[in-house]
Each structure stands twice: as C-alpha cells, then as structure tokens.
C-alpha cells in the first residue's frame, strides 16, 4: 500500500495513494497508523483524495486509529473524502465519529 507522510505544524498528514482500501490492504493501513501513534504522533489527518473505494475493513482500520488517538487525548481526522466513499461513513454513521474536513489545509492553522 502506498502511503505518504508529511508533518506540518505538529500535524501528521497521511495520504493514501491507493484507489482502493479493502480486506487485501486494510491491515497494512491499520498497522501503519498504529505504529505512527506508537511513535508519539497523536494529531493525525488522513487524506482520502485518491481513494474511490473503501470497504468495512478499511473503515475498521480508520476506526482503530481513531480510538487509539482518542485514548491519548489526541486528534484523528479525515479529509478530501470522495462522495461515494463518504456515503459509507454516512450509512455506518461514522460521519458522526470522525472529524471530516473538505481539505487537508482546513485543519492547519491559517
């Protein structure tokens, strides 16, 4: 799975460079985010601009990271979510759990 990490004003911005997150690669995403949090990062934004498909295991991987950061009084958010992918968060009501920004820059200080 292609993932890019950029640090900006104390925020770790992870960009998923894959069109698809499913049971084939979601464990890799889950492990990557767990290691990032383990290394001390607790303000994380995941950019989903390239992701046009996500399944239940992909949602689970993001939820796992959300719970880890929440337990550490951190922040975990998503941005640039494509419309059909966003519908998955709506069906599962996870849009009420995650902070979802239109763009990554919306979470950065002006």
């Amino acid at each position: 799975m292609k993932l890019e990490l950029e640090k900006n004003h104390g925020l770790s911005v992870v960009t998923i460079r894959e069109p698809r997150v499913d049971a084939h690669n979601s464990a890799e995403l889950k492990d990557y985010l767990a290691q990032l949090i383990e290394s001390g990062e607790n303000r994380i934004l995941v950019r989903l601009a390239d992701v046009r498909f996500i399944d239940s295991s992909g949602l689970g991987a993001l939820l796992s990271a959300y719970k880890r950061t929440a337990a550490d009084a951190g922040q975990f958010a998503l941005s640039n979510v494509q419309p059909q992918v966003l519908s998955m968060f709506e069906i599962t009501r996870l849009n009420r759990v995650f902070e979802i920004y239109a763009d990554a820059k919306d979470m950065l200080p002006n």
Binding site: D55, S56, S57, L59, G60, A61, L63, S64, Y66, K67, M88, I91, T92, R93, L94, V97
Partner: peptide
C-alpha cells in the same frame, strides 16, 4: 447489527450489504 455507539472496528460487512 453493529453497536454503533461503540464505533465497532469489525462486523460491519453484513450491515453494509443489508443497507444497500
């Protein structure tokens, strides 16, 4: 059905299938 209040990390597959 998944317990949404607990933000479940698994068990959502069948729920999604039933939803659509």
């Amino acid at each position: 059905s998944p317990d949404f209040a607990a933000a479940p990390e698994s068990g959502m597959g069948l729920f999604l299938i039933r939803s659509v």
